[in-house]
Nucleic acid binder design. Structure first.
Lengths: 160, 160
DNA sequence: TATGAATCGACAACGGGGTTGTCTACTCCG
DNA sequence: CGGAGTAGACAACCCCGTTGTCGATTCATA
């Protein structure tokens, strides 16, 4: 059985992700954004794109609202967002990304893009594009766990 | 800035990994191997390939030996390995993969390979092979965090 | 041969990132 | 008005990893 090619592929995908994230966060730390984690990046992006309450963020990230709240607490401590009461709905705490938060997002985005550019240079832009297209189809095309969990949440109403 | 293509690529890689792992572990659970986690699979493989002590496993996986020990404890509880004293060196506990452990590894490997086959069918075997080759180069070719940490461990002697 | 350095594994405490369950406050609809 | 649904906070827990410390053992060497 030597080694499972399938298992190795999985490891390569994970390794690729970690490689990118390590590069980006190492550089982020050098530029005044220490303590940033991968989840912070992506959560902040989702918030800025409209998921501006804890519950909504949880839905977007397919995570419980309590889980999302923990990330939000971390982001607030790091100074990347503020929690403000909503004027119309007193249940809500509206999330607003701070200037520092936007700085970090912009920097993170450009660093990620740099890494991607390096990859494109090594493997050729066409190859990279087709890799992305395939991955997107393969990942989107699964009715499995994550999406199933998301659907479950919607179907069952609130558990919490 | 719309969305960072680089960040999306990272997410795709992570999603690809999770997609594979979810598929495999869902099926593993259906076949009598509930409770298996991604880390268990890969750790058991490393052990079977020769990393048969906690410290050595830690080195192979680039984690602390305490971290490796926790995985080992979990694997032992699940019945996938046994810890036996070494006859020559009383400090060591030799790790031996049980029959059930070999079953799980074989099943996991074939499930991973199945997923990979499906991917190959969708994107074409040549495309997949070149994706793997590129990823392997990109991941191996970084003198960064993980390997750096591994080297640090060797250089500094034992911290623990 | 005795001793000091290195290594092994175990244990405790902690942090990050998740989970579930419970709770109160609030909105919204009939 | 009252009940159903939703928001967020809090507690307790799990997993996986970390560092630091420890006693036991081996090994090198003076």
């Amino acid at each position: 059985m030597a080694r499972s090619q399938g298992a190795e592929l999985a490891l390569l995908l994970l390794g690729g992700f970690q490689s990118m994230v390590d590069d980006v966060h190492g550089e982020l730390a050098h530029r005044g954004h220490e303590g940033v984690r991968a989840s912070h990046e992506f959560a902040l992006r989702a918030i800025d794109e409209g998921a501006d309450t804890a519950s909504e963020l949880g839905r977007r990230l397919s995570v419980s609202k309590q889980g999302a709240a923990k990330t939000i607490t971390a982001l607030e401590k790091l100074g990347y967002l503020r929690r403000e009461p909503d004027s119309l709905d007193a249940r809500l705490k509206r999330l607003r990304v701070t200037d520092r938060g936007h700085d970090m997002m912009a920097l993170g985005a450009s660093l990620f893009d740099e890494v991607r550019e390096r990859w494109a240079a090594q493997m050729g832009p066409g190859q990279l594009a087709s890799l992305e297209a395939h991955l997107a189809r393969l990942v989107a095309h699964r009715p499995s766990s994550v999406d199933a969990a998301a659907r479950l949440n919607e179907d069952l109403g609130e558990t919490t």
